[in-house]
């Protein structure tokens, strides 16, 4: 499948082809379909890291691209496509969590997100062992994330899980680059001092 082929599981692609974005902005449906192929897995991964349920992440990804498609004409600079897409995704995730909290509060749902034990073990053809390992990994990440402030967590995730550059993060969060850097340095320092997580990751990598 072309969409899967364009998604590198070890790292994310570089920026989008500005020409492709420009065509999509001018209403070229095929160009937009190509952008969906390139970015859908990356946006899905970004959302999954925050909601921890494959089906919910899929639904939100779908919503993100529909919104992007409808508002493509509002994107004034083609080179800002990636941060623009991520900001839509971030807003959708925030809305999703707000709805979940509302449902939980009013008794309509038993789930509270994010939670490490809500890792979707059934998704993606994972075996039971894979599911356990994934649960363990996201649990470690959550323990570390709990030590960060909301801002630190956002910039850390966008920088090191979603692989955005500092100027892009500043655009996604609508903050100055210096603010993003300050938050990021603090978050990196906390990561470095979290020996348990670092050792876990080194062990997993080996």
């Amino acid at each position: 499948m072309e969409a899967m082929a364009s998604f590198n599981r070890n790292s994310f692609d570089a920026g989008p082809d500005a020409e492709l974005v420009e065509k999509a902005r001018n209403g070229d449906r095929q160009a937009f379909d190509r952008l969906v192929q390139i970015y859908s897995e990356r946006i899905f991964a970004m959302i999954y890291a925050r909601v921890r349920n494959a089906q919910d992440a899929q639904d939100i990804t779908q919503e993100v691209f529909i919104r992007a498609y409808k508002n493509m004409a509002k994107l004034h600079e083609a080179e800002k496509f990636v941060p623009w897409l991520f900001s839509i995704a971030r807003n959708r995730v925030t809305d999703f969590k707000r709805k979940k909290r509302f449902l939980f509060f009013w008794g309509g749902s038993n789930e509270v997100l994010p939670a490490a034990d809500k890792v979707d073990e059934e998704a993606g053809g994972q075996t039971a062992l894979d599911g356990l390992l994934s649960r363990e990994f996201w649990s470690q990440v959550d323990v570390f994330a709990a030590k960060l402030s909301t801002g630190e967590k956002e910039v850390f995730f966008l920088r090191f899980l979603d692989q955005l550059k500092i100027p892009e993060i500043a655009q996604v969060l609508n903050k100055s680059q210096s603010t993003v850097k300050t938050l990021l340095y603090r978050a990196v320092a906390k990561f470095e001092s979290d020996r348990k997580l670092v050792e876990y990751i080194r062990k997993e990598a080996s």
């Binding site: 599981r9 790292s11 899905f44 899980l161 080194r202 997993e204 990598a205």
Partner: peptide
């Protein structure tokens, strides 16, 4: 390594967009 592990522990999308 954290980034790679996160990708490894992210399932594939259940379906296309």
């Amino acid at each position: 390594a954290l980034h790679r592990a996160a990708l490894r522990h992210t399932p594939t999308m259940p379906g296309p967009v």
